[in-house]
Design a binder for these strands. Structure first.
Lengths: 338, 338
DNA sequence: CTGTTAGCGCGTTCAC
DNA sequence: GTGAACGCGCTAACAG
């Protein structure tokens, strides 16, 4: 469609394009009469200035950074997004453009849109599993990439955590407290999005048990869809076992909340009768007093931005940006078994 | 700072600017040798194409829509944001640029940034209370505004709900169930952000009681900071009153979750002994089975985008975009008193 | 106060 | 295969 330009407006209003520009920019040196004529023409023609052209003469080229993520309702993603937002805010040189993938099979479209639109300089990919073709397309569109993943990738620079180590850490912590009957509640894997999170944490759990000479009791492993409720149901079942576990390692704080609820419902005291340990350390968790593994979510978003900005400046510091290792935050839901 | 342009690269590589352009756009008709020379020059000079200039010749002018909101951790805001995201996705003609206000006193800076940057065509303001000066500044920067608020505004087109009516509806629903001892748990007001939500819903509560000839018992009104935990504490206190309420109207689903937890902890059965009604209808709430007042959060974001797009096109349909009225969604946490 | 002109940085013709 | 004009829509500096 032929866009209406400042020139059309000028002709229509019977003035020069300079005058139109002045009206557009609220320049006071325009007589009221002509200003009104111009404004009328603008309205009539439904003229709308072209942003790109407008920016051009100023030479200003601020950055647009995209963030690609699945779900806007999943806490860990949103907390990372907040970190990204804060870092970008602090840097004061870039905007945050949000891209949300609603389903795994819609990634293609989105990447197409992003590459064809040429609107962003860099992209932070949170958790979304991109194929090599996607990455290739992004790169040839000259978009600098940084991933924030649950497992390190070769295909692009990443901020990531070692979930196997995290799972190991969590389980070992419970073992050190003296627990010998430790359950695991997590997402079933593999899942539609290909998130490796649950699998990795479970492997850490398994390795820790093995290292400390404890057998893995299949009854103590409950995998299912993600969610507080399903986790609650799993915890119920665990607690009603003839020989219930004395500790539950939930692979996420949300699931730990579910387990907590189940314990409460069954009148099972935490941490006296059952220790519950989460993973994530959501902002919420401190309020609930949940013991958990802190994986520095906010920092991961923050670090992602730093890395990206360094990369955009060809600054070698980019490769130094990492994440603190996960750590156990002990609050009130874990203790030695009684 | 003097930006390095395609011309600099051309000179450096000893080629014409056309060739550089071709390399940039992956045009296959460039010999491998020259391509390499150009790429080297690009790297040496740290050249980065100007997005605006790039878009200019194509005539493509896609929209950038900003979203301004406080907190990225507050569920109702995030759900509205999701609605915005979905609508923009569906329209396929605009990007979502995210602006997050971290504190009420930082609104000024942000508005300054937004107006000086000239990056967006429209702005959807979620819950943030803007002064007339802010709105003025935005308008003279030619940014079209739509607000999504908890109370209708005159200063700009809005999607809003009537929280007084919502509070009335909620309370009347409980009264109709037969409750005569109905408590209210909400945020204390006024608050730092100036959100009128709790006050409005409380007024609806009060009016409903009055309309139905029930006295307002001050012991049954608990106001405090927002949060599941504080609500939980309030609910505890309510339930331990010599004459406890038979129903609790929590002004938000999160607070209702807190009340639910308190009831569980005290062994107080829901809904047999205590009915609990929330407000919001978060995505989460259906999983929990919480009875609540649906205020169409997602739709409000969706509608905001529609209204904005109409406004940008001077389409009078803009004024027809509204929101369904709030409705009570009865699930399992409310029933007649026994 | 207002019209005209010269770029802004890049993609796209063309000729070479 | 490659270089050099030309124009995208707009702002700013300059004449009037």
């Amino acid at each position: 469609m032929p866009f209406v330009t400042i020139r059309d407006v000028a002709k229509r209003a019977g003035v020069g394009i300079g005058t139109v520009s002045r009206v557009l920019n609220n320049n006071p040196q325009v007589s009221v009469a002509t200003r009104q004529r111009v404004e009328e023409a603008i309205r009539d023609l439904k003229f709308r200035p072209n942003r790109a052209a407008r920016l051009l003469p100023s030479g200003t080229s601020h950055l647009n950074i995209g963030v690609l993520l699945p779900y806007l309702s999943y806490h860990p993603f949103v907390e990372r997004l907040r970190g990204v937002q804060q870092a970008l805010d602090a840097a004061e040189q870039a905007n945050l453009v949000l891209y949300n993938v609603s389903a795994p099979d819609r990634i293609d479209e989105l990447i197409d849109m992003i590459t064809s639109q040429r609107n962003i300089d860099g992209l932070i990919v949170i958790a979304v599993n991109l194929t090599d073709a996607h990455i290739e397309a992004l790169y040839s569109a000259n978009i600098t990439l940084v991933g924030i993943y649950d497992r390190a990738l070769d295909a692009m620079p990443c901020i990531s955590i070692d979930n196997v180590a995290g799972g190991f850490l969590a389980t070992e912590y419970l073992i050190r407290l003296g627990h010998t009957r430790i359950a695991y509640i997590g997402d079933s894997f593999p899942n539609a999005w290909g998130f490796p999170t649950s699998e990795d944490r479970f492997n850490g759990y398994r390795q820790a048990l093995h290292t400390h000479g404890q057998a893995l009791n299949p009854d103590y492993v409950r995998l299912g869809e993600h969610g507080e409720n399903i986790a609650r149901q799993h915890a119920r079942e665990l607690l009603m076992l003839p020989e219930p576990p004395t500790a539950i390692f939930a692979m996420s704080d949300m699931q730990a909340f579910g387990a907590l609820a189940a314990a409460r419902e069954l009148g099972c005291k935490t941490p006296e009768q059952i220790s519950i340990l989460g993973f994530d350390d959501l902002e919420l968790s401190q309020y609930v007093g949940l013991s958990t593994v802190r994986q520095h979510l906010r920092e991961s978003g923050f670090g992602g931005v730093q890395k990206l900005l360094y990369l955009l400046n060809d600054d070698p510091q980019a490769h130094q940006i990492g994440l603190p290792t996960p750590e156990v935050i002990q609050r009130v839901t874990t203790a030695a078994p009684s």
